[in-house]
Amino acid sequence: MSIQLQAITQQFHGQSVLDNLNLTIEPKKIYGLLGRNGAGKSTLLNIISDRLFPTSGTATLDGETLHDNDHTLGRLYLMSEVNMYNDRSRLKRLLNSTALFYGAFDRDYATQLAAKFDLNLNQRFGKLSTGYRTIFKLIVALCVPADYIFLDEPVLGLDANHRELFYQALIDSYTERPRTFVISTHLIEEIANLIEHVFILDQHQIIVNGSVSDILDRAYMITGPDTDVTGYTAGLNVIGQDHLGGITANYVYGALEDDRPIPDTVTIERLDLQKLFVNLTNAKEATTHVN
């Protein structure tokens, strides 16, 4: 019971976008897929949903291929940044066709959400602003009967109130009917506590793959005078540094040395997900720091 990606490699014009990537997405979990611009998040999601063909590798759902397979493709839904709907189509009609193709659709909830977001379903898709396009696609994503929902930039163009509404609707819908959500976003702080498991995509690879609490358990910020911090973190997996006057902050990803005495002048704090992400994916730091 899962989506499995095996040895996915994607190249565009000889340029590697994804390189021998392996991934398992389990049922009924909320995932975060994080990566910098151009890291290949959308490409990865497009491969899973059979919109693009990988150069090599396979994607399966419960052991069955996701390529050219109505049965498996109908069990997932990718809400993408690219607009897949015809500009001239009215929203009502798009909901109808979604219901027709997916076989079931929570129309009541869709109507309810549209009212909450102030979205008039008699409009044509092309007439919507970026924010409302996102809202419409989100409504569809929350109402399709799929088991795996992928949300690529789900809050693009949404103001703070609408973002709040969306996160609430997401949790409501998830509690009502637990299923997998994979959320790809740049607003890490907003989803940091929402996601159970995180994938970080960098340098064509998944460099972090684990439960958020496990990962944050291994991420530290060690602050204090320059020499003390450097001494204490010697040999540890330092992924980044900040300096302010004589004070240094070293970011460590990985276990600390338990038997090493902690100098009085040094404080150890945990990193949050965003800070960890920024340090792990800083171009100059590269992937050598990840284990």
């Binding site: 996160y167 949790i171 509690t175 907003e190 989803i191 506590n193």
Partner: peptide
Amino acid sequence: STTEISKEFHINPAT
């Protein structure tokens, strides 16, 4: 309830 707290603070229900 779990859901109420989860919704209010955007925290994963499992957490």
